[in-house]
Design a protein around this nucleic acid. Structure first.
Lengths: 233, 233
DNA sequence: CCGGATCCGAATCGATACTG
DNA sequence: CAGTATCGATTCGGATCCGG
């Protein structure tokens, strides 16, 4: 038994030993969006020390979660194995759970293309999804968000390199939405679309405001359960 | 932004800051079985340093995941808040995922009542569940496992204190099964019930061997996906 | 620029001892 | 029972450096 092992023969323990180290799950989060190069990961995790990124990638490879793939067109990428991709529903659920406890952003907090992409997947509600095609800007991050036939597709417009999955769509989006992190309040149902605009949480730069109604029905996460109730005597 | 923050405004990041520290998720795992006293948790996590347990419990309380409840009958217990209990499906999924990577137990690995209880919940397959009523022994741990009407109920027989949820059932179990950790191979479908007995992975001490067939249909987790396939070019 | 490796101080973790 | 206190062993974080 390794010194740092939890010392239990248990599935949860095994899982935590595979992806429970600091930063590991965030690496997986970014890789769920698509294969990424070392430098991409470093930019998507601005505060990760490079030696930790390096160490985690080795551990995740050793655990069969991540694979290192030399690219034909020079360079190399890290990608999830089939086993690693099986974490997708779990990470979406974790993101949904964490979103409920998410408050206002702390000073210095950033939003990255991959984290916002996963946040949209997290809050995407198949049941009430409405067709959409818009451009979403949060800080420096710009995404093309398309919903059609109950399917969500997100293309990252920044940086201006179409990495995987083909180039960005040719047609114009129905709307361009510029949002602060306050978009969270809309997704959490704390404000209506109209209130969100009124409170400068987001603005429809091009297109009809009406689209925000569809957005609010398509992306939604319920508010945090109260922590003072629910005693189990 | 705290020094040790991940510096991102994201649901996954928030979740990991709440329950991603070392040992935290294992505390949640045990509390999902029921409210536990400090000493119960310490016994269920034999290798946790007491100062870490103490620190984690404070952090989990600060995060609204755990609540400290003074007991009428002297003493106090920790229990999950409603928000903490929302982690149950996530922890079951994590356990299922980790189970697939679980190999043979390392020297010194133990099985605890709570981890085995959660493992049974993890591998319980509602769709193919068969009615069952048996006693399961793994190492020092003994559980009464009852399945009826698609519902699983687990009562911990060791230590011999019926803590929560009333006393153990009066009636005799249909069978007593004594298993080594090799019960994993049965649940993973790597061996049939007959082979499991043949290979000394488990024994039916009292009752009919036929019950193992029902057990194998009721508790099941598919094997690990191969890690060498599934390239995404 | 890409893909790391190395070094070092700071913070955390683990083990043991001790206390109300 | 329910933790604190202490202290050495690890790990993390930040910075720098290096070969392609």
């Amino acid at each position: 038994m390794a010194a740092r092992s939890y010392g239990q023969y248990c599935g949860v323990t095994t899982a935590v030993e595979l992806v429970g180290e600091r930063w590991a799950l965030l690496i997986v989060r970014d890789l769920l969006v698509g294969p990424r190069r070392y430098t991409d990961l470093k930019r998507g995790l601005p505060r990760i020390p490079t030696n930790i990124l390096s160490t985690r990638l080795k551990e995740l490879q050793a655990g069969g979660v991540v694979r290192r793939v030399p690219l034909a067109s020079c360079g190399l990428v890290y990608e999830l194995t089939e086993y690693g991709r099986a974490l997708e529903p779990i990470l979406l659920a974790i993101g949904r759970w964490g979103f409920q406890a998410m408050g206002e952003p702390a000073a210095g907090d950033v939003v990255t293309p991959d984290s916002l992409t996963m946040a949209l997947r997290t809050s995407f509600q198949t049941a009430t999804a409405q067709d959409l095609d818009l451009e979403l800007h949060v800080g420096d991050v710009a995404l093309r968000v398309q919903v059609a036939g109950g399917e969500l597709q997100v293309v990252q417009l920044t940086p201006a390199a179409p990495p995987v999955g083909g180039p960005a769509p040719e047609a114009e989006p129905q709307a361009v939405i510029v949002a602060g992190p306050g978009i969270r309040r809309l997704i959490a149902g704390e404000v209506t679309p109209a209130e969100a605009i009124e409170q400068d949480l987001l603005a429809v730069v091009r297109g009809e405001q009406q689209l925000l109604e569809r957005f609010a029905r398509t992306f939604h996460i319920p508010p945090t359960p109260s922590t003072s109730t629910g005693s189990t005597p």
